[in-house]
Design a protein around this nucleic acid. Sequence first.
DNA 1: ACAGCCCTGACAATTTTTTGACACATCCTT
DNA 2: AAGGATGTGTCAAAAAATTGTCAGGGCTGT
Lengths: 226, 226
Amino acid sequence: MKTILIIEDDPAIQQGLTEVLTEEHFKVLSATDGEIGYQMARRECVSLIILDLMLPGKNGRDICRDLRRDGVKTPILMLTSKKQEADKVLGLELGADDYVTKPFGVKELVARVRALLRRETLLPSAIVETRIDNLSIDFEKQEARRGKRSVSMSAREFQLLRYFVEREGNVITRAMLLDDVWGYDVTPTTRTVDNYILSLRKKIEHNPAKPSHLLTVHTAGYKFVK
Amino acid sequence: MKTILIIEDDPAIQQGLTEVLTEEHFKVLSATDGEIGYQMARRECVSLIILDLMLPGKNGRDICRDLRRDGVKTPILMLTSKKQEADKVLGLELGADDYVTKPFGVKELVARVRALLRRETLLPSAIVETRIDNLSIDFEKQEARRGKRSVSMSAREFQLLRYFVEREGNVITRAMLLDDVWGYDVTPTTRTVDNYILSLRKKIEHNPAKPSHLLTVHTAGYKFVK
DNA sequence: ACAGCCCTGACAATTTTTTGACACATCCTT
DNA sequence: AAGGATGTGTCAAAAAATTGTCAGGGCTGT
């Protein structure tokens, strides 16, 4: 689950945002003072920061600049009162990623939050494509093909395989898979995992019954090797 | 290490860009005057040029055109103030590869820089016209015709199709479509998207029920292939 | 008022995900 | 080394989720 830090002194907005975002299944942290918010942003591991421009303690402008200077790359969504301010906030001098002017619509805000988070997850240049024996896989395009024959995989299968490929050689427990690939909110049986392993093997292994890539580590989990 | 040439007269942006790109491990050269920048672009060996549209000395538009005329193939990322300008900058007449409108977020800019560098072939990223089977489409004129029979499409349909065509082969989620094609202020249902896909298929596919271009990627979104 | 777009809601069709049953393998005790 | 206990492989069918499709209502510009 993604955590969002809200740094905002107006209690009405603070509370409203918290409610909305919680409802949208985000975890929310908050600070009403600039200096405290800044410290939290540095210490806590959050996915996105919603930052008011005007704050007691330390204003949003400074927080933003300082965070960037500290090397914090978390996306920042600025709340401003005037459009003119907003233009200055963006651009490079400060390093915010997007802004919303008050008064703002809840839907718009949530949409922007989601957009920022999505862009975020697209950026890290994790593994985009790979090759297992003569099967080539493009995770971004969600395509897998053996020679010119395309092999169909569901979205979850791609996710799962990617998870393994990115952690090549490490033992992956079922719990890790359930947490990271499925998420906290759903809890299928561990049998579900086995079934996906099964179908992945059918697609990537030459002899699914004697796997050479997606190995089982008894009582522990699975391991992918190339 | 890749070298990036920045041609930009506003010192704030100039400096900001330099900082950010340096931090991202690029080597940065810069010019604040158009004519000087143009000369540098011709002489120095750089991997990418970030070019402001409005410049003293020689404006970005001319620099871009002249560089292309000189046979310089280096990717060019334009900085513009208005979206309308941007659309004109792209396309073939000038030869820029991508653009960012001010104010822009750091992440977006860096992402675009990386994308351009990754891209080996210098395709202009804005497609003005295309052909799908025997259907020819002109996005600028908003015309589509199959042979001499014109096929009517609404503005939104053109937008949507263009979005797909420009991202050929990539999986496009409904959220991306809603954010990028519809925008943040309106929030139609995802069902709306499906309906547009439906009507686009009726217009571009030979057999809309068995699409061969506008494919659905179950649980993920859609994908356009030619 | 009319035509054309845009959006919504309902329901059907399809695909994916999960479950449950059972065979088989491995581990750990005795 | 035998035998139970537990963990895994496998399949098919049920359950859930996603997408396809259509008809209709609201809105806008003419």
